[in-house]
Amino acid sequence: MAMLHIVNKSPFERNSLESCLLHAKPGATVLLIEDAVVGAAQGTVLSDRIQKALESVKLAVLGADLEARGIAQEKLVDGVNVVDYAGFVDLVTGHDNNQSWL
């Protein structure tokens, strides 16, 4: 089993991403959408945490939300994938189950 975790809150405001990473099992994918995409940027207080998370889970961000917030793809932590809405759909179908961290 591999689960898709969907996070939509800025990790600088709420603990959703932190709680999600605490519960995501190795092999799971964490998709950041809406305000959560800011958590994948380089040079933040969380970048090291994200880098470490990549050792056990896959991380993806929704490109549309990234662009809307003025974050260039080159500024993402290495290893974070960018997907479009079609890619979001593929992540849902490609995992056994999914959970939104509201």
């Binding site: 689960m3 605490l22 099992k25 189950n97 999914n98 959970q99 939104s100």
Partner: peptide, 18 residues
């Protein structure tokens, strides 16, 4: 524990969060 909770989440078909 959080680790047991992770196992519980992992084995579900439908996760409803509000």
């Amino acid at each position: 524990s959080a680790s047991e909770m992770a196992d519980i989440m992992d084995t579900q078909d439908i996760v409803l969060s509000f």
